[in-house]
Nucleic acid binder design. Structure first.
Lengths: 407, 407
DNA sequence: AAAAGGAAGGAAAACCTTTTCCTATCCGGG
DNA sequence: CCCGGATAGGAAAAGGTTTTCCTTCCTTTT
């Protein structure tokens, strides 16, 4: 307590010092220039010498025409189409046509407008454009469960696909709270978003958004329970089969399966498909059953013990996720069972942090989450463009082979 | 290979089935209710009987009046202020005043407008409002390094603080690429965002945004190297002192420090403060120096061995992050050193996944990341409101005590 | 040579909200 | 009875862009 106080007061000094400009700026030789410019821009250019009445059509409130070309115009409002038009000697309508390749214009006129826009560093105001078009070139990304390990790659993948379309992502986290979700939905709709991507923590199906919003919606990772909705999900079944096939192909025959709670879709599907794939090769689950438990290392360690006792001849374990697999790896090592010589181990999720740091590093199934996000975004773009899709689209998984499964 | 193909084709069927409502919902006794509610809530409520034709000024293009009451109004455009005004029998100007508590209106008029807005579920179009006001009630969240473990809590904290202000968050991930950052910045400015929060992966200072944008900007987690910028960062120094003080208070005297690369600000500051705090109690670093390495479990395991050899009497280890601490814990356990009886262990970051799963669970320092995000957002709101702040603000850390440090 | 047609670009409306200015009504007072 | 003032609410402009329609001028054809 007292220590905390003491620490804080002196820290204000000590922590600020190494970060103060003197030291740090020297490390960045490129920076002082912009820094100085900023002062100039703000301090010097700001008082806007008003345009002498409206000579033709230029805006009355800004001075962008007089700003030094190429400089950033901090403080002054961004240039408008009117400014561009005035500079090019045309009207706003013509300027708009030139910039959007509409209407009939002489090539040189179009060129003049383009140059003027370039010179002023003009970017159309999306608010004005959106007001007219009734859309905002923005999509809402609604994560139902708090953002985490699984939703982030999806999110980044989506952003990747949306960026080239000049569409920005509005982030909303409902933290599993329905009220919060409703509120976010209302806000998003009020903002005239073009569409919504809904993503959850895991792959369990979820009820569709309350009130079935009037904008296109795509569910990523966790599908909607309504088959009329578009959903993009990992091919869980294929992933599980990949893992089991890999073990069988490596010559393993006594394969056990440890996974998460039976009521999780991910655990249920993976377990079912593992069993089926084994059966196709005339094999059965080692230990005679799937070991359901938590998605934790602790359960992995515990279950590994159970399996070693139930069937000491077990030569491979397929785990429902990487945490469990890592727990198994630890337990086996402590029991002097060699991986992969004695027992091969395969995880699921390719959670790099866990899988790569495990001893030995884990062979595992990658969900291609970024790809799921990208495809979800593409489907959303389709729907926004008037070509909606429906149903659940699966994205294949990939097997990542590391030391835990091959000698 | 062949397996993958086979798996995929059959999976289209098999993966859709177990995810359909029937199976999964049964496993979640809590779930069916929300599921049903969603359906009910849609069907039953709020019938908005529309105004009879355009008594005064209603919109000419939409048919919202004829939509079935309470149903999702897919297709029909959202109501405008004109609709509200028509329903209330006033003009748009008056309606605006009523809703915003401006101007002089008879109480009953105001009430009539309010009721009409309520009935139509009216929400003002932020695009129109923003066009007029020159702002968008939106802030950009620019993460310089890919979103991750550290930036997410910051992001959520910021969203928390911005939500009540009706401000939405536009997410941009520059992935450490300066070009990408510039591009995002341009896009954000074109969208007339109200401000920017810049957040990085870790606490190292970073150069200010190129071109010093004309909107308020706050740096969270990693401060700007320019002291004129506003930055909100964890009190790293205080956190390190908390950790060391905790060990000293527990009676430990031979305390070692293992941490990340010396050129990381986080490692440098924590190490420096650890040394200072020890000196204040007349102690020195066990092993005579700070052990710098990677932020990984591997390095933790390795360094633990170094320390055990260098000074077998070491009775506590303070680690620069939880990964290292976990590696140390594993190495010590395997060397039959008891934690905390023989050696007390303290980590840093309170990365729950790691710290809580470690054996034993780690005492560690929590950075209060959400609070940092919240405060950054508040500073941004201040700046947007015309009360800018400058300099680095630190947020205190918290010591989380678990089994690794107390017997 | 005159009219028709086409090409190029201007004018203005529309999108929706906020705000300013103005009008009309009603009251009291002279 | 008339006027001034207060009060309630209407009218209109502004904000920036897109799009439709229209004007003007030039070219071509008969």
């Amino acid at each position: 307590m007292a220590e905390l106080e003491a620490a804080r007061t002196e820290d204000l000094g000590s922590s600020a010092q190494p970060q103060s400009a003197g030291d740090a700026v020297e490390s960045f030789p490129a920076e002082p220039a912009p820094g100085d410019q900023a002062d100039d821009g703000n301090g010097g250019a700001s008082p806007p010498p008003r345009a002498v009445k409206k000579a033709g059509a230029a805006s009355t409130r800004r001075q962008s025409g007089s700003a030094p070309p190429g400089q950033r115009q901090s403080g002054s409002a961004p240039p408008t189409l009117g400014d561009v038009a005035a500079l090019a000697g045309v009207t706003v309508g013509t300027a708009s046509k030139a910039l959007n390749n509409r209407g009939r214009l002489r090539p040189e006129t179009r060129q003049r407008v383009l140059e003027a826009a370039e010179q002023l560093n003009f970017q159309p105001n999306p608010l004005a454009r959106g007001l007219l078009a009734g859309r905002s070139w923005t999509v809402g990304l609604l994560t139902t469960d708090s953002i985490g390990r699984f939703s982030i790659p999806v999110l980044l993948g989506a952003e990747d696909a949306l960026g080239p379309e000049q569409i920005s992502v509005l982030l909303c986290d409902s933290r599993g709270d329905v009220i919060r979700e409703q509120h976010h939905l209302r806000t998003l709709l009020a903002r005239r978003i073009d569409g919504i991507i809904v993503t959850g923590r895991r792959t369990d199906p979820r009820p569709p958004l309350a009130g079935r919003p009037s904008v296109p919606t795509v569910y990523a990772l966790g599908p909607s329970t309504d088959p009329r909705d578009a959903s993009v999900v990992p091919d869980e079944a294929g992933g599980a089969r990949l893992a089991v096939a890999h073990l069988i192909d490596s010559g393993r025959t006594r394969i056990a399966h440890i996974t998460g709670p039976a009521h999780h879709a991910a655990a249920a599907v993976r377990a079912e498909q593992a069993r089926l794939r084994l059966a196709e090769s005339g094999l059965e689950l080692c230990g005679g059953r799937t070991y359901h438990g938590e998605w934790t290392e602790l359960w992995g360690r515990h279950a590994a013990g159970l399996i070693l006792r139930a069937d000491p001849d077990c030569d491979a374990i397929f785990c429902g996720n990487d945490l469990i697999a890592r727990g198994v790896a630890d337990a086996l090592r402590e029991a002097a069972v060699r991986i992969p010589e004695d027992v091969a181990l395969v995880g699921y999720d390719n959670w790099e942090l866990i899988a790569a740091a495990s001893r030995p590093p884990l062979t595992t199934v990658d969900l291609n989450l970024a790809e799921i996000g990208r495809i979800a975004a593409l489907r959303l773009l389709d729907a926004i463009g008037g070509r909606p899709t429906a149903g659940i689209e699966t994205v294949p998984c990939r097997l990542i082979v590391r030391q835990s499964s091959v000698i």
